[in-house]
Nucleic acid binder design. Structure first.
Length: 575
RNA sequence: CGGGGCGUAGCUCAGCCUGGUAGAGCGCACGGUUCGGGACCGUGAGGCCGGUGGUUCAAGUCCACUCGCCCCGACCA
């Protein structure tokens, strides 16, 4: 492709509305442009990177036994009512009406549609398993779209769904898809990790996320050199370091002490000469049906996702000051478990491990010191609702874990029968019994993966594309485009490269060298070839890699060979 | 949904406080000089100052409403 025939428009200045690197650089490089909040145009350069990723995805999924289909973006409400998600999804689901006033939605995901497709066809266990995927535009009306393609409202996603006669067969497909995902991200040249994940709203038994590691990632993940990795929402820990020993005597019963105006654990601890870990922090949550007092050690935080799963509720939030006062009898900031009767008490294991503690007294400006868990209060439930933090011991090997940030680019689930039962997607087994299909689903954010690649591969000048995702692998830069001898050489070389099947963009613009070089650095083509008057006079061209910028000359008549060798070298690095 | 900010030329922004003929840089067009790391000189085109309604002799500027966009938050007792 010739630059002058393509549609490539770089920006000299950063767009005012772009915050993160990938968004900024992709807009500046002319790969995407914004149409509305969270909705982007994929311009020719951007689309090429997307298409390259899609090709890799297709190859690996087909190899893993999945078959492509394409489902409608617009879906009838009836299906979503069958699965009950029509009522569970909030405003994130874009609902629309047709001219007959019938309800539809723009699909944020396709479990309902695929289940409908499969239930209409599958009758017998002999027809299973089924494994289908699509690459398609989805829409989720996010509360706050941001970060360009990283978190748009409209986005391209690969989603796959599998249907099985039993859990063992689902496991086979799950492992195959997991392996396919690994190959996909490896082939893209991305540094990634997998983590155990919470199954969230989609539900199911087992789930893994694929995270591209980048300091700017939205998700916190805990990882251990031993190989354990988990989303912080799900992460377990080994035994947490015990609190320092109690610096005074343990009374026979809790002693109230005045703590005027001291609400936060840190403040009260300092005020009383104790360590935050000596405290039981009591937080009152409310769900759709009850109030719950949750106890956590004072130096720890509550993991609300764990808590939500434990309570099995749909809604979870901190209770208002009024409700706290009503249920505890004391103001916010002075709650404690001793004598608390208005709410179910859930204690984290770290609390029960405390030999003695300080807590709120459920009375204004008062705390209790010398509270012995199990003696002075008895929680209804003891569970792990602790939020893992950097340095906590790994649940598998006990070594300290690190907290890293990642960009979630893939998420696979064992769904089980969450959709097949309500939607009656069933088959007859070998004994003639009707059984629900066991399902898996497998998502991969296409645009987000490309954005993550930029997030992970850039420098001060622009993008540094990994070869497999670069919009073009090679850019041929013609300098001195007003010199006929240069034009002749450049045109001939471009023809050779094109005929040889090299993925090349020919910068045939009449621009000053500085402008061209800066554009190339900004867009980040892996291999740059420069043809200019200086080189032509010497019978040479210049090659350089974007990632190191080192230039080397090659004889003009050996140019094609040099390009091929360089590309072969880059491919070999990817394995 | 709450809080904050911003909407002025294709892009990045000034002008608004203190009302009085619409600005800069970049980009674009033309001419000239330059030409291997975002050149220089000259000339020029380009704006219902997001929209609506007020106040006023007069509104980009003040007021109200509205739409759009961005940021923070929507949890830590």
């Amino acid at each position: 492709m010739r630059w002058t025939r393509s549609f490539i428009h770089t920006l000299r200045q950063d767009p005012a509305d772009a915050e993160v690197v990938s968004h900024r650089l992709m807009v500046r490089a002319g790969m995407i442009s914004k149409l509305a909040a969270g909705i982007y145009n994929y311009l020719p350069l951007g689309l090429r990177s997307i298409a390259k990723l899609e090709r890799i995805i297709r190859e690996e999924l087909e190899a893993a036994g999945s078959t492509e289909l394409l489902m409608p973006a617009v879906q009838p409400a009836e299906l979503w009512q069958e699965s009950k998600r029509w009522y569970q999804y909030g405003p994130e689901l874009l609902r629309i009406k047709d001219r007959h006033d019938r309800d539809f939605c723009f699909g944020p995901t396709h479990e309902e549609v695929i289940t409908d497709i499969v239930r209409k066809e599958v009758r017998s266990y002999r027809q299973l398993p089924v494994n289908l995927y699509q690459i398609q535009t989805k829409f989720r009306d996010e509360i706050r779209p941001r970060f360009g393609l990283m978190r748009g409202r409209e986005f391209i996603m690969k989603d796959a769904y599998s249907f099985h006669a039993d859990a063992a067969d689902l496991d086979v497909a799950y492992r195959a898809m997991e392996a396919a995902y690994r190959r996909i991200f490896e082939r893209c040249g991305l540094d990634y990790t997998t983590v155990e994940a919470d199954t969230g709203n989609i539900g199911g038994s087992e789930s893994h996320e694929f995270m591209v590691l980048a300091g700017t990632g939205e998700d916190a993940i805990m990882s251990c050199p031993c190989g354990y990795g988990a989303n912080v929402e799900k992460a377990a820990t080994g035994e947490i370091t015990p609190a320092p020993s109690w610096p005074r005597e343990i009374p026979r019963k809790p002693q109230p002490v005045p703590t005027p105006g001291q609400k936060s654990v840190e403040d009260v601890a300092a005020f009383l000469g104790l360590h935050p870990a000596h405290f039981v922090k009591t937080m009152i949550f409310e769900t759709e049906e009850e109030l719950v007092a949750v106890l956590i050690r004072g130096d720890r935080e509550i993991n609300e996702v764990k808590l939500k799963n434990l309570l099995g509720c749909d809604h979870l939030s901190l209770a208002s000051a009024e409700k706290i006062e009503k249920v505890t009898g004391g103001p916010q900031g002075f709650s404690g478990p001793v004598g608390l009767e208005g709410a179910r008490v859930v204690a984290d294991a770290t609390v029960m491990a405390l030999p003695v503690a300080a807590t709120g007294a459920n009375a204004a400006d008062t705390h209790l010191v010398g509270v012995v868990p199990g003696r002075d209060f008895q929680p209804a439930t003891v569970a792990d609702v602790n939020l893992a933090a950097a340095g906590d011991p790994c649940p598998r090997c006990g070594e300290p874990m690190a907290e890293k940030r990642g960009i979630e680019v893939g998420h696979i689930f064992k769904l089980g029968t969450k959709y097949s039962i309500p939607m009656r997607c069933t088959f007859l087994d070998a004994e003639g019994n009707e059984q629900p299909c066991i399902m898996g689903c497998y998502g991969l954010g296409v645009g987000r993966t490309v954005a993550a690649a930029v997030e992970q591969n850039h420098d001060g000048k622009g993008i540094v594309w990994p070869l497999p995702l670069a919009p073009y692998e090679v850019v041929l830069v013609m300098l001195n485009a007003d010199k006929p001898e240069v034009v002749e050489v450049a045109e001939r070389l471009y023809g050779q490269l094109r005929d040889a099947g090299v993925d090349v963009l020919f910068d045939d613009r009449q621009e000053r060298p500085g402008v061209k070089f800066n554009d190339m650095d900004l867009i980040g083509f892996p291999l740059r070839i420069v043809v200019g008057k200086r080189g032509v006079d010497n019978g040479e061209i210049e090659l350089s890699l974007r990632r190191d910028g080192e230039r080397r000359s090659a004889p003009l008549d050996g140019a094609l060979t040099a390009v091929r060798e360089t590309l072969a070298g880059l491919r070999a690095e990817l394995g």
